[in-house]
Simulated scan of single mutants.
Amino acid sequence: MFKSLNVTARVFERQIVQPRPSASVNSVRQFYENFVPSCTIYDIDCPDNSFRKFTDDGKYLISFSRNHQELIVYRPTWLSFSYNGEDCDSDALSQRAKRFDSFFIHLYTVSLATSNEFICKDVFLYLEGLEFGIFATSTAQTHEVPATEGAVNGVQCIERIVFHLVRLEDGFVLDEKVFCNDFVNLTHSMGVFLHEDLLCIMSLRYQAIHIVQIRDSGNLVDVRIVGTFCREDDELFIGSHIQVTEGPIFLSGIKQRLLSYIFRKHWSEETDQTLVCHPDIAFFHFCVSCLTNFIFKI
């Protein structure tokens, strides 16, 4: 049923409509949506923190210390002051209304980073049902690092990256996921994605996607790594059907699957019947086309 947001219509509806049993409180709370700020207070006595954001449910305000090594969490007190009049002026309010602690309660301060690590302020993922928060700390980036086995040449390297699972209710660190000598793009959380209870972390240095499950108990459990092999039995299948040679694999599993999808799409759109009837010839033309595009891009 359509419900109007107009406050006059809501008052009229409250007079003529009888709410369901034990639901009168919810109908009254709908009027809170019509309360909007009418005054802005400037020059607030605010802590010297780097404020990040509110959680999706509005229960917590996430901030970091200026040295980006401590997590500082506040809880908003919501409606704190009101003004009985038409034109509200900040000077008419009490001096307490100009203090930060009049609107927020400091819950705790937790040290996440060590002496040579810093909190990445762009990374914050929130599990609303469990009230868990995911934060990231890392050391400084290094550019001239020799590529180890499985790593890609020319990709930056970070000595240590740690993902922290924090219970926001009391600030207890439940679990950690550590990456050593790797590179994850933490800017704007581009290398980290959360879907329900699955956390995906993309490693650019090793061209792999780490899928981690967040349990209700607060544990980070490794589910799968999509990189050299995509499925669980890929390594067994390749080892039993193909003669394995020493040295790195030419293409990782995820690259092979992407190229196969591109080839199948290219083959399905092919109009030349000679190429359609001979997949080997079509694959040769596909390789030549890819190589030509690669040369022109260079």
Rank of each mutant, 00 (worst) to 15 (best):
F250Y: 04
K255E: 12
Q243V: 06
D222F: 06
N219V: 02
D233G: 05
T245W: 02
G239S: 11
E232H: 15
L251W: 01
Q213L: 06
V223M: 09
D233M: 03
V244D: 03
Q256P: 00
Q213G: 08
D216N: 08
V226W: 08
G239N: 10
Q213F: 00
E232I: 15
L220M: 12
V221L: 01
S240D: 09
G247S: 09
Q256L: 04
F229W: 13
G247Q: 10
K255V: 14
F229Q: 09
F237P: 00
D222G: 01
G218M: 09
G253K: 11
D222P: 02
C230L: 11
L236V: 05
E235P: 01
N219I: 09
D222N: 07
I238N: 06
V244T: 04
S252C: 11
R231D: 11
S240K: 12
Q243D: 08
L236I: 08
P248F: 04
I249V: 12
F229L: 03
Q243N: 14
E246Y: 11
G218F: 07
G218K: 11
S217M: 02
C230Y: 12
R257M: 09
G253S: 11
R215E: 13
L220C: 06
S252K: 14
I238Y: 14
G239P: 00
T228Q: 15
D233Q: 13
Q243P: 14
S240P: 00
N219G: 01
I242Y: 01
I242Q: 03
S252Q: 14
D222Y: 00
V226I: 14
L258W: 02
I238C: 04
I254E: 05
E246G: 00
D234K: 10
I214S: 01
S217W: 02
I214C: 00
L236M: 12
L251C: 07
G247L: 00
L220G: 03
I238F: 14
R224Y: 03
E246K: 14
V221C: 05
E235K: 12
E235V: 07
F250V: 08
C230K: 10
F250S: 07
V212P: 00
G253F: 02
L251S: 05
N219W: 02
V244F: 07
V221I: 06
L258E: 10
V226F: 13
G239H: 13
G227S: 09
L251Y: 09
G253P: 10
C230A: 04
R257S: 09
I238W: 10
V244I: 07
I214E: 01
I249Y: 11
C230N: 05
L236A: 13
V226N: 10
V244Q: 15
P248I: 04
L220W: 04
G227H: 05
I214M: 06
G218T: 15
Q256I: 02
I249W: 05
F250Q: 05
